[in-house]
Amino acid sequence: MSDETGAPAGAPTARVEVRKTYKLFIGGAFPRSESGRTYEVVAADGRFLANAAKGSRKDGRDAVLAARKAQPTWSAATAYNRGQVLYRVAEVMEGRREQFVADIVDAEGVSSSDAALQVDAAIDRWVWYAGWTDKIAQVLGSANPVAGPYFNFSLPEPSGVVAAVAPQESSLLGLVSVIAPIVASANTVVVIASSARPLPAITLTEVLGTSDVPGGTVNVLTGEAGEIMPWLASHADVNALDLTGINDSALAVSLERDAAGTVKRVRRPSPDADWFASPGLSRLRAFVETKTVWHPLGV
């Protein structure tokens, strides 16, 4: 007996899946590492998952270039527009919910229900930060009652290009908690995904690539933070570092030292962060500058 495909009776019925090539996300495109290198990513149980691109210092520089190029456009967009773009990311994430759950189960070795909680929290966090874009100026800005005939106001503006290291453990929720506030405050970002658990980040790049986020606003590299970050920490076109996911304290010290060369703003590592906790304003405050404008009053 045979079915209509002609397969012999008793043969396995499972379909041979089409696997994906995992690449970097730079300037809105998905290039391989210019170095041609990859590294093996395995599941929590040791099973082979993929060969991820091993980003190089040149990839890091390309990503900074893309982020710098995107900076004027992203920061000049209206806050309303930025909010809608970020909300769109949440919408598209919602549609990929099952894929994110599967990615996290593989990467972190947690149950589907635990992974689902993380995905839900990550999507909700995007929504939360999306709503902040047109409120930051009112909450962090001010009209200042100076003692003289002047109108004086202060507004937060983005620091510029931020180089960030995503948390090593929390592969999606941690990543989203780091990059969403950076872009919500109108910065552009180069982020290095969790080295051992990069696949949820790459799935996120596919979301970003299809949800109206201008190319170069978020750039995601996979590989070793220890290899790429020193070049970004001393890069004169990077304005700030977010070292959240750096677990190696000697590396953190050396990156912070390099950052001093151009007086970069640095957010220090927070290896024990609880990513489910309410984030507060701290990450929105981290990479903004206060600009104060004076003008005389008179007729």
Binding site: V146, N152, N239, T262, V263, T292, W294, H295, P296
Partner: peptide, 23 residues
């Protein structure tokens, strides 16, 4: 720049935040 003076310059006040961008 952290402080922009328009049609005036070098004004200071305790209620007005002062400080820089970049280096």
């Amino acid at each position: 720049a952290g402080v922009v003076w328009a049609n005036t310059f070098n004004r200071f006040d305790p209620a007005s935040p002062f400080g820089g961008y970049k280096e």
